[in-house]
């Protein structure tokens, strides 16, 4: 096991570029979820306005 490989990131044993790729999916998902939540809130506010 090449635990001393400098390219590998603790604790998963992925290389840096691999770990960055996994992270990029997380970021993408979060962005989409954020936009969806924003749209949903706007739509709810249009039909049943809160805060006056």
């Amino acid at each position: 096991m090449s635990t001393n490989d400098p390219n590998k990131v603790w604790p998963t044993g992925l290389t840096l570029s691999e770990a960055e790729e996994v992270h990029s999916y997380l970021i993408d998902g979060t962005r989409v979820f954020g936009v969806i939540a924003l749209i949903a809130h706007i739509l709810v506010a249009v039909s049943t306005p809160w805060l006056g």
């Binding site: 969806i36 949903a40 039909s47 306005p49």
Partner: peptide
Amino acid sequence: GGFAIMPFALLVLSGFGKA
């Protein structure tokens, strides 16, 4: 994402509430 906004979109489309 589509399903998450769909019910509100449909309610607004149908003029529900203040929409």
